[in-house]
């Protein structure tokens, strides 16, 4: 266990302990009709979309970027698929169209960032603003409900465990394998740590940046499908609302610096779990769920301050750089 994951792990354990203390049956799991049920399973299922987007966001942040448009992209994916199904289309072709559109939006963001050279935060603000409008354009402002068992599987289906979490974990494992088995992870970190040295070493940073923006858009698309499938409806206004903030938060809590460079997928997983567990905890201890935001704020501030260079200098002036 690396040192920088220590705080997130402690935070998660503490949250779980609070839950066990309040509800002793918190950790219990039971099988029913071949499905696994329990509070832990709920946490995983509800956290699946955030985890998936945070996964893509980790890579974007590792290149010194950020993507604010993920929530809007998720809403568009749900809108496209549900409209397609509602018009009598096949759910699979609907999802394929949706994801292709998401990839296109990722290309657009990547174009603005790597070719035009716009700061990532502004470049993706464009799609964040316009994206929900586009989603509403697709649904014509309605909440489109669909009744399609196949489509429902993605967000609400079970294969012992919820399918949504299986998808997210598969994506996590996939990304871990791809970035570590190929050289993608190395090149992403290299671009994030020192763009100029990477350029002089011949790294194609433009391609790398483009790749991560397309990837995060695809992740958002799938997450959007989960969200809309879970409720069998597309709500252009509220689907994936604030999920970009949760995703960024998960990444930051997981120890990946917004300044780019070394990233930790395990950290992101922990971060996403912490956020979801926090939501559940607030619910179980009987505070109105909306107040979760206050706790989130406290957690973010605490984690950021603990990671802040100024504070760590003050606390431990001569600490050596920690080897991972």
């Amino acid at each position: 266990m690396s040192r920088r994951l220590l705080w997130p792990v402690l935070a998660l354990v503490a949250l779980l302990l609070v839950n066990v203390f309040v509800t002793p049956s918190f950790l219990s799991l039971r099988m029913q009709d071949g499905h696994l049920f329990g509070s832990l399973v709920d946490i995983l299922r509800n956290g699946a979309p955030t985890l998936l987007i945070a996964l893509g966001m980790t890579l974007v942040i590792a290149t010194r970027g950020i993507d604010l448009s993920v929530g809007a992209v998720a809403a568009i994916a749900g809108a496209v698929t549900c409209t397609h199904i509602a018009a009598g289309g096949d759910p699979f072709s609907g999802m394929a169209i949706a994801l292709a559109l998401c990839a296109l939006m990722g290309l657009w963001n990547g174009f603005l960032v790597s070719v035009v050279g716009v700061q990532p935060i502004i470049a993706t603000l464009v799609l964040m603003t316009a994206g929900r409008g586009i989603a509403m354009l697709i649904t014509e402002g309605q909440i489109i409900t669909v009744d399609n068992p196949a489509y429902r599987q993605i967000g609400a289906g079970f294969l012992v465990l919820p399918i949504a979490i299986l998808i997210s974990v598969a994506a996590l494992v996939g990304v871990a394998l791809v970035t570590r088995r190929t050289a993608l992870g190395l090149l992403i970190e290299s671009v994030g740590v020192n763009p100029e040295a990477s350029r002089l070493a011949g790294v194609r940073s433009r391609t790398i940046i483009w790749t991560v923006y397309v990837f995060v858009a695809l992740c958002s698309g799938v997450a959007g499908l989960m969200i809309s499938s879970n409720v069998s409806a597309a709500d252009a206004n509220n689907a994936g609302l604030w999920i970009e903030m949760d995703a960024i938060l998960a990444v930051v809590i997981g120890g990946t610096s917004l300044a780019g460079g070394r990233y930790s997928l395990t950290g992101t997983l922990l971060g996403a779990l912490i956020i979801q567990t926090l939501t559940t905890t607030v619910y179980t201890i009987g505070v109105p769920p909306e107040v979760t935001l206050v706790f989130k704020a406290v957690v973010v501030l605490a984690v950021c301050l603990l990671q802040a260079p100024a504070l760590s200098r003050a606390l431990a002036p001569r600490r050596k750089v920690v080897l991972p």
Binding site: R181, T182, A183, L184, L186, L187, S190, S198, A201, G202, V203, R204, I208, T211
Partner: peptide, 14 residues
């Protein structure tokens, strides 16, 4: 291996 890797592209790791 950075320069060597950059020349090979990300899909063909050393």
């Amino acid at each position: 291996i950075l320069a060597m890797q950059a020349a090979r592209g990300w899909a063909r790791p050393v």
